[in-house]
Design a protein around this nucleic acid. Structure first.
Length: 579
RNA sequence: CGGGAAGUGGCCUAGUUUGGCUAAGGCGCCUGCUUUGGGAGCAGGAGAUCGAGAGUUCGAAUCUCUCCUUCCCGACCA
């Protein structure tokens, strides 16, 4: 890995005696995740309020190194850097329909004249509005990007930098004349992202994902396994199948049912409110219809999965195209279906209530379900005959232990942090903004867009989540706040100080990002701080060794120490960092 | 938004149950001395409207009410 570029940009004189890095022995009581504790303890950042963090000098330095790597890889695929406004007029977002769609997640306010504005959560609209100035296919393709602040009114910021309300994101947008062009640019981004994560030393898995509020045809998330993550990824250990649970599928064993009675039989089930209780009363969960009453864009809707399975709300949202969805309240179920949760079902409901049924129930019969009358259920239900199914769709959430749909191997589920996400948008935003060009035949074509995002702070935190030990952080050289620290054991020993300063100057001249710990502190303090902060290499210089012409060279990740001759240490450091 | 927990110097905590003198301890910080290869020692010192407001009381960190803030879980279990 080439560290020279980063070093050129960042090498500068820095003595620890003048460095503002307030390290703490104890993590703040309200920090839970590893990255949150360590980034605060190491003096990288401080919380201002929930979801808003101040970057201190060390934190900003790491942040900038991550950003620089992202820049370099975006430039490498022909990206051009922009900087767009963070504050947008309402009209722009109304044009795409997202002023409504984004709901409470968008920060909104009025300026002094009463005009409504919003803080940008993402920049499809703004970039598409600029793309209206492209008139010819000859100008395409384009890749446009920026590193810029995003604002999102998250319902629950959490885990330090992992989920915040304002953060720097690299967002890029590809502009093409057709789908083939989009596919090519999408693949370029896919490759660039893998390079970025490789340079950040993150083991990111590309997985199939839901496109959510972005819209569009295809999307891939880059997921880094970590217990602090918020997403579950289904992986096949055999055939490389990987997908977010919001999208993942698996093989379901076929179930053969006994012939049903001529019509559903209603039977009394006093006090039975759960799948489990109904199972105890003789109806296997695999033969129950779990009917969840949802409100989709204001309309009562029933989603049905098998009794032993779980509904994935994102799948329901994706397959219905609903902008907003929530479970119905108990009052609403009584009003629209006539019973409270626990006795609900899809048999014989009003015509205007849409019913979506999971594919695994197609063709099933002799099922048990709520009768929409408290304390009563139906049995002997034939789904084709008795339920007015609007559509069979994939609704159920894959669980660990199920079989891979491709190869039959037992699937695993891994908790992950979403480190990056790329989308094939299509023409939605270009259409809304009127971004059209003339093609080679003189025909007007709408520009085909893709959008691609990486959160810089989140990636910094993800590196922290995956690079630490009981002593503190262990940054990869590519993003470490410093490449190497020279730890001076005794600032009163002239020979040591002189040797340390000489090495410091030589490494600086070689463009190495070096820090000299020239504080008048005891050895233990200096060791503990350098390990907490996670500087990858340490040169330890003390009177004892200097007298014999020796210094120590320690690698943070392994804590292995090697004795090196004073005359050779500069070359050793250069060889290690610049090779 | 629902549920749970918690707010005491820069950081971690005790004290709150059972109201009572100048709010205690550790870390960190300042001064001096000593020390200098794994978060030293001694001495002295600075730093707190105990989250905010209202109330009860002779007296409130402690009891009551309201509000604010932060963290965790959830946002489907029919």
């Amino acid at each position: 890995m080439d560290n020279k570029a980063a070093s050129k940009t960042y090498a500068r004189r820095m003595r620890w005696s003048n460095l503002f890095t307030p390290t703490l022995r104890d993590a703040p009581g309200d920090a839970e995740s590893a990255s949150h504790k360590l980034l605060v303890r190491g003096g990288f950042m401080r919380q201002l309020h929930a979801g808003h963090y101040s970057m201190l000098p060390l934190g900003w330095k790491v942040h900038e190194k991550v950003a620089q790597i992202v820049r370099e890889e975006m430039n490498a695929i022909g990206g051009q850097e922009f900087l767009l406004p963070a504050m947008h007029p309402k009209s722009l977002w109304e044009a795409s329909g997202r002023w409504e769609l984004m709901g409470d997640e968008m920060f909104r306010f009025e300026d002094r004249s009463g005009a409504e504005v919003g803080l940008g959560m993402t920049h499809e609209e703004v970039f598409a509005s600029i793309a209206t100035e492209i008139n010819s296919y000859k100008t395409l393709p384009q890749i446009w990007y920026q590193l810029q602040w995003k604002f999102r009114d998250e319902p629950r910021p959490k885990a330090g930098l992992l989920r915040v309300r304002e953060f720097v994101m690299k967002d890029s947008y590809s502009l093409d004349i057709d789908q083939a062009g989009l596919d090519a640019n999408f693949d370029k981004h896919h490759e660039a992202y893998l390079k970025i994560f490789d340079r950040l030393d993150l083991e990111a898995m590309p997985v199939e994902a839901s496109s959510g509020a972005m819209g569009g045809a295809g999307s891939i998330e880059f997921m880094v396994p970590s217990p602090s993550g918020e997403d579950d990824v289904v992986t096949c250990p055999n055939c490389d199948y990987q997908a977010n649970v919001e999208r993942a599928t698996s093989k379901v064993d076929a179930i053969s049912d006994d012939a049903p009675p001529a019509e559903p039989e209603k039977f009394a089930t006093p006090g039975i409110r759960t799948i489990k209780a109904l199972e105890d009363a003789g109806a296997p969960a695999t033969s129950q219809m779990k009917s969840m009453i949802m409100v989709l864009d204001g309309n009562i809707t029933i989603a049905v999965v098998r009794g032993d399975q779980q509904l994935n709300m994102q799948k329901l949202q994706d397959s219905t195209g609903a902008a907003e969805l929530r479970p119905a309240t108990p009052d609403e179920t009584v009003e629209h279906l006539g019973a409270a949760p626990g006795s609900l079902g899809a048999v014989g409901v009003r015509d205007d209530i849409a019913i979506y049924v999971d594919e695994s129930l197609q063709g099933r019969t002799n099922l048990t379900t709520g009768a929409n009358e408290d304390d009563f259920h139906y049995r002997g239900v034939d789904i084709e005959r008795d339920v007015n199914v609007m559509k069979y769709v994939d609704l159920r959430e894959v669980r660990a232990g199920e079989s891979c749909a491709n190869c039959g191997t037992t699937l695993e589920i891994v908790r992950c942090i979403e480190a990056g996400h790329i989308f094939k948008l299509g023409t939605k935003y270009a259409e809304a903004m009127g971004a059209k060009v003339l093609d080679a035949d003189g025909e007007m074509q709408t520009i085909v867009m893709g959008s691609y995002g990486i959160g810089i702070g989140r990636n910094m935190a993800t590196i922290a989540e995956t690079h630490f030990d009981d002593k503190g952080l262990i940054w990869p050289v590519s993003v470490a706040p410093f490449d190497v620290v020279i730890t001076v054991m005794n600032m009163k020993d002239e020979a040591t100080v002189n040797a340390a300063n000489a090495l410091y100057d030589e490494l600086l001249a070689a463009r190495i990002d070096v820090l000299i710990d020239d504080r008048d502190a005891r050895a233990g303090v200096k060791f503990a701080d350098s390990e907490l902060i996670g500087i990858p290499y340490r040169v330890t210089m003390g009177p004892r060794g200097i007298a014999d012409g020796l210094v120590e060279f320690t690698e943070r990740s392994t804590m292995e120490t090697e004795e090196i001759g004073l005359a050779d240490i500069a070359d050793k450091v250069k060889a290690t960092l610049l090779s």
